[in-house]
């Protein structure tokens, strides 16, 4: 896999949530509060990058030992990815429960479910096919950040319009919640429901798709002129 520019890779146009439609359960469920979306993004990012790293290392180790590529069967590869992801998710969840319990409380069941998140699993599997370990990890980072941006953006829209607040981390005298004037008394509650989440995701995906089409057309036009 070639290292790609940030706009062409997993960050923008192959964004796991909007283009590949992966990881939707957490993307809809935890995006009712900005803080939960931030925690979920960070959690997914860490698990994704680490499992991609391990999978890439394992894949390369198999090459170097015997001097030729020993393609692991797809089944073994997936089993490996699943084990690594589950181990990472479980460990991080235990750590978070011990030290930052409010993060786990906000994510609920969706925190342990990262272990079987198809976005993480596919990222780990892609890393085994990367040319170098660095490429595999870079792809995972781009994909994780793309997912994070998507989640936070959706959460921002949904929380501001759907609840009239922005929930962040409490710092000092700041309680962590900003009430949006004019909206917090009678917000558009439909956006806080699951349907509202899908609606936001749909519009985000449509915007990215239209940007991509426009860019492709512009490029085609340029090539035509030359």
């Amino acid at each position: 896999m070639k290292p790609q520019g940030i706009t062409g890779g997993s960050f923008l146009f192959e964004n796991p949530a909007t283009a590949l439609v992966m990881g939707l359960c957490p993307a809809i469920a935890v995006t009712t509060r900005v803080m939960d979306a931030l925690w979920m993004s960070a959690f997914v990012l860490v698990v994704l990058v680490l499992s991609a790293l391990f999978m890439a290392l394992i894949a390369r180790a198999r090459v170097s030992e015997s001097g030729e590529v020993q393609a692991a069967t797809l089944g073994r590869q997936r089993l490996g990815a699943l084990l690594i992801t589950a181990t990472l998710t479980g460990s991080i969840e235990v750590l978070l429960t011990a030290y930052i319990p409010e993060a786990i409380a906000g994510m609920g069941i969706y925190a342990p479910l990262i272990a079987v998140n198809c976005l993480v699993l596919s990222g780990a599997e892609r890393a085994t096919r990367a040319e170098t370990v660095a490429n595999g990890v870079a792809d995972a980072v781009a994909s994780g950040f793309g997912f994070a941006c998507c989640l936070v953006l959706i959460a921002l829209v949904r929380e501001v319009l759907g609840a009239g607040t922005i929930t962040l981390f409490p710092v000092g005298s700041f309680g962590g919640t900003i009430a949006v004037p004019g909206l917090s008394c009678d917000p558009i509650r439909a956006l806080g429901l699951a349907g509202g989440g899908l609606l936001c995701l749909g519009y985000l995906a449509a915007a990215l798709r239209s940007l991509q089409t426009r860019r492709a057309n512009a490029m085609a036009g340029k090539a035509g002129v030359q």
């Binding site: 009678d186 917000p187 558009i188 509650r189 439909a190 956006l191 429901l193 349907g195």
Partner: peptide, 8 residues
């Protein structure tokens, strides 16, 4: 109308 019912 359903959107409004869900919201308000």
């Amino acid at each position: 109308v359903v959107f409004a019912q869900l919201s308000w």
